[in-house]
Amino acid sequence: MHELGIASGILSSAITAAENVGATTISSVDVSIGVLTEVMEDALQFAWDELRQGTMAENAALTVTMLGARSRCADCGHDYEHGRYDAARCPSCGSYVVMLLQGRELDINRIDAD
């Protein structure tokens, strides 16, 4: 249910960016969400559809790009893609000292505004 808070963050960032350039309506908003976060795309769209009512983003479509998970081994330098449950161990050398490169994003990328 924290998708409501996420949607609220998207809306306020989008409106601020639009106002900064003197725009009055927002027609689309693009965001990227890492698969390792606890954000459900359906719930986010639902929250967005509610929150945008009565704002300059009232007719703005929310486009969500889900980003896969990737890590790099700190011991052998191997870069690898992984799912939710096999992140912590390097598939090449077996080390547990790994750094997450991608998968926990909650980013707003761009908006279309006039």
Binding site: S13, D107, I108, N109
Partner: peptide, 14 residues
């Protein structure tokens, strides 16, 4: 017009 933002959604919280 397209406006690039590229920031964290929870930037205010962070």
């Amino acid at each position: 017009m397209q406006i690039e933002i590229e920031q964290r959604i929870l930037a205010a919280n962070e």
